[in-house]
């Protein structure tokens, strides 16, 4: 079932000199199967918005339904909600705490009262799903792993709860280009195997354009627009107004188009660009002959 957000407002520290309206009248529907990207500058309210989705931040005004669960009532079945919506925060490796990787990953399932024998199976599956060898890693301390491995373990800790909806806050922040790509590929595979709906915050337009089928743009607490990547990145006026950069591929396509080559200005993936160039070139070649 979809995520439906209606007229959501949120104010931090109301009625104090630090008062700050972080969300202004957000209306948004995220369908099942969406890979939803959220972009926007620092402080635009992205993190505040997503922390509403598993009731870490409680609704002040407006309403939210997630997978048929109404988040408005004071008393909520938190366990159910949090096993439905898996939340991976920025730098999730900083939340690791247990002696071994296996125990740490088991923390989530244990909390939501998964039966003992099932926990082991879930943990094994989760660790393998993030691309680590279960036998090799299960007894190691999470603190002695490399940065990228830690992040995978943290991700496994969330996946072991088998959420239907996966929410990620800048999952690739602070990784090297290769680590970034690996994490994105991993999220792709998780999406096809476990979490049908994925929501991702990112500052990297290439990642967003590559992965998402819809992009929401936040600015100063408002949701400015929701568009498919192709449409968003081909609208230069909108990009300029919202002060958003294009993905490098799109920028490249635009430069080619500026020089007279017949390629679409909204291209967001390498393959598409290559195809377009080949097509344009052969067309040009054809007319010359």
């Amino acid at each position: 079932m979809p995520i439906i957000i209606k007229d959501l407002n949120y104010v931090y520290s109301p009625k104090s000199p630090y008062e700050k309206q972080a969300l202004k009248n957000i209306n948004l529907t995220i369908e099942d199967g969406d890979y939803f990207g959220i972009i926007g500058h620092t402080g635009s309210g992205k993190s505040t918005l997503i922390s509403h989705l598993n009731a870490l931040t409680r609704i002040q005004s407006g309403s939210i339904t997630v997978d048929g669960i109404d988040l408005k009532p004071k008393k909520l079945d938190y366990k159910k909600l949090r096993s439905t919506v898996g939340m991976v925060f920025q730098y999730p490796e900083y939340q690791l705490f247990d002696e071994t990787v296996e125990k740490d990953v088991a923390f989530g399932p244990k909390n939501i009262k998964v039966p003992e024998d099932e926990i082991k199976e879930r943990v094994k599956q989760a660790i393998e799903m993030v691309g680590l060898n279960y036998e090799k890693f299960k007894d190691r301390s999470p603190f002695e792993l490399s940065g990228g491995q830690k992040r995978r373990v943290a991700l496994a800790g969330v996946l072991a709860m088998r959420p239907k909806i996966l929410v990620l806050d800048e999952p690739t922040a602070g990784l090297d280009p290769r680590g970034k790509r690996e994490i994105l590929e991993l999220i792709d595979s998780v999406k096809s195997r476990l979490c049908h709906t994925v929501i991702m915050i990112s500052h990297n337009m290439d990642e967003i354009a590559r992965s998402c089928n819809k992009i929401g743009v936040m600015s100063d607490g408002e949701l400015k627009c929701v568009l498919p990547p192709k449409e968003l990145f081909s609208r230069r006026d909108l990009l300029r107004e919202l002060n958003i950069k294009m993905p490098i591929i799109t920028e490249f396509a635009n430069m080619l188009a500026d020089r007279g080559l017949d390629v679409d200005r909204g291209i967001v993936s390498e393959d598409e660009l290559v195809d377009a160039i080949v097509k344009a070139k052969s067309a040009v070649g054809g007319t010359q002959e």
């Binding site: 949090r82 939340q95 989530g108 909390n111 709860m161």
Partner: peptide
């Protein structure tokens, strides 16, 4: 605050 949120998201009570 952040760590508490993260552990709550993992079902900690």
């Amino acid at each position: 605050d952040k760590i508490i949120s993260a552990q709550k998201a993992r079902g900690a009570d």
